[in-house]
Design a binder for these strands. Structure first.
Length: 524
RNA sequence: GAUCGCGUAGCUCAGUCGGUAGAGCAACCGCCUUUUAAGCGGUAGGUCCUGGGUUCGAGUCCCAGCGCGAUCACCA
């Protein structure tokens, strides 16, 4: 399409709709409710009768509602109430902005509660203190409008701390009907789909996401304090390596190649160790094309870190101390009380397996008959260690969810990127952390022997089906890097969303992700 | 993918045994200078998720579908 054609069309659209200033295009066609129509009409009345621009402008000198409240001065408030009152108002002033979450107009006086990120504060408007237009506006504003008010910080007869407005302006007219002012949005679907409404009507939501920001920030500071540097590695990869999960596929047009959204950054972070970085970490999104439930979102945030000349034990200790610092003691999680101060429990994979199933995981015959008894498919023919893995899910459930627990010494066959024990090559230097019934992450002494690594990849590729083969191919460049030489290292991946769940007592991952994935609705 | 639950006004929710679609808040009109989910009087507001079926009659019962939630399964 040519430029001329586009610009002609653009002109037509503009002159036809916006310039007339009347009800913006097809407000009726969109079957907007009467409630929206009422708000549009009010907006036009404000423009016509009060000469007000309801879309606002820059405001300098704003303070948060919390800051304004903190300026309240009891003595000054008492002085104003005295008879006679002082010649000069001794109360400190403030200019604030916020969204209206309550509004009570009573003739020549009106009260409203403003909300911002810091909290709520009442603004009181007396007809005597404001010019006629501002008072009219103050008594007619709607739940959801964004307003600016200034005046002395005082209190009402009932003792409510408030701003007695001598300036009142609307800086954004909310046209959408707000939720019920007391219950807010309670429907989970609506809370996720219209998060912007949930955030201002449900203070707990705002608190949770502020807390998430603090946790991520504290985690970064912790890692930097321990000498790690933060890096960014590719999200689009031509080989989706570093974990076992189905990836999302995309395509680069100019290169005409398919790419995968990463399922893990591991193989790139290890290349950085080869290049000479000693301690690196990355906090960013991974994408896995798997199911969605209370603990899984297709895109989720992971911290991965690698420490040259460390090992599984050193990164495990590092993480335990990070979580201890973030939690600061005992935290509730659902029905549980989780103590992060005490040293975390430890159990070996083999012991946990035996304790749960009453048989030794290395006993192939016993494992096969157990698998058959549990009704697992291909119990007689499937790889012995894959059966062990399938049976391990039940063992995970046997871990006390109230006790942070390390499961150590995973089977080497299930840990292709991990260094095996020197004295028992069936075991690997790999641990997983479980808290609150969730897997929080994986911890390794990294495999840096290029020959064993190539053999592991090759073994792995031998046993896969066509679908897996489509995205799981040998990352030759990574093997080249190991030939150049990667120092011995400890490394780990920690699920940040799940850490946030534990720290904020949210039992659904959707409540710690601002915009969790839902099936799209109303997309045109 | 399986099972169970939910879907009624903008929001929060009632709706009995199958018999004219309800309340509160919000909105609109009016009153009100100390409210705290303000109060009082009045007005308006419905694709009962969608499509079939049973029935004289369906928000209600049955079937299918859609969306969401929970549990399970899957998820080196």
């Amino acid at each position: 399409m040519g430029h001329a054609g586009r610009s002609v069309r653009g002109t037509l659209i503009r002159s036809g709709g916006y310039r007339t200033g009347m009800n913006v295009p097809d407000s009726k066609d969109r079957s907007e409710s009467d409630l929206v129509a009422a708000r549009r009409a009010k907006l036009e009345r404000w423009r016509a009768d009060l000469g007000i621009d309801p879309w606002g402008s820059r405001v300098d000198g704003l303070v948060s509602l919390l800051e304004a409240r903190s300026r309240f001065d009891e003595a000054a408030a008492d002085a104003v109430d005295a008879d006679p009152p002082p010649a000069e108002d001794p109360r400190p002033c403030a200019t604030v902005a916020g969204r209206i979450v309550q509004h009570r107009a009573m003739g020549k006086l009106c009260f409203m509660v403003l909300r911002d990120e810091s909290g709520d504060l009442q603004v009181s408007c007396s007809k005597a203190d404001l010019d006629a237009a501002s008072f009219k506006l103050a008594s007619k504003v709607d739940y959801g409008d964004i307003v600016v008010a200034s005046g002395p910080v005082g209190r009402t007869k009932r003792g409510e701390i408030c701003i007695w407005a001598d300036r009142f302006e609307v800086h954004c007219k909310s046209l959408a009907p707000p939720p019920e002012k007391y219950h807010g949005l309670t429907d989970a679907e609506q809370r996720y789909r219209r998060r912007y409404v949930d955030m201002y009507t449900t203070p707990e939501t705002m608190e949770t996401f502020h807390r998430r920001c603090e946790i991520v920030s504290a985690t970064r500071r912790f890692m930097e304090r321990h000498g790690f540097i933060e890096v960014e590695t590719p999200m689009m990869q031509s080989v989706a390596g570093g974990a076992a999960a189905r990836p999302f596929t995309t395509h680069h047009n100019a290169l005409d190649i398919d790419l995968y959204l990463r399922i893990a950054p591991e193989l790139y972070l290890k290349r950085l160790l080869v290049g000479g970085m000693r301690k690196v970490f990355e906090i960013n999104r991974n994408f896995r094309n798997e199911g969605i439930d209370r603990r899984h979102n297709p895109e989720f945030t992971m911290m991965e870190a690698y420490q040259a000349f460390g090992d599984c034990e050193s990164v495990l200790e590092l993480t335990e101390s990070l979580l201890r610092e973030l939690a600061g003691g005992v935290l509730p999680y659902g029905e549980l009380e989780i103590d992060y101060a005490k040293p975390f429990d430890r159990v070996t994979h083999a012991d946990l397996f035996e304790r749960t199933h009453g048989c030794v995981m290395t006993d192939e015959t016993a494992v096969r008959s157990l698998a058959a008894a549990k009704g697992l498919k291909d119990a007689a023919t499937r790889n012995h260690w894959l059966l062990v893995e399938a049976l391990f899910g039940e063992a995970e459930d046997a871990i006390d969810p109230a006790r942070p627990t390390w499961v150590t010494d995973f089977p080497a066959a299930l840990s292709p990127l991990t260094r095996p024990h020197a004295d028992d090559p069936t075991l690997a230097w790999r641990a997983e952390l479980f808290i609150g019934g969730m897997e929080l992450g994986n911890f390794y002494t990294e495999l840096n022997d290029p020959d064993i690594q190539r053999a592991r990849f090759t073994d792995q590729l031998a046993g896969i089906n066509d679908e897996e083969a489509a995205f799981r191919s040998l990352d030759n460049d990574f093997l080249e890097a190991l030939l150049v030489g990667m120092p011995p290292a400890g490394g780990f991946g920690l699920g940040i969303d799940r850490v946030v769940m534990l720290m904020t007592n949210q039992t659904s991952i959707r409540d710690v992700i601002l915009f969790p994935l839902l099936r799209p609705e109303g997309v045109e």
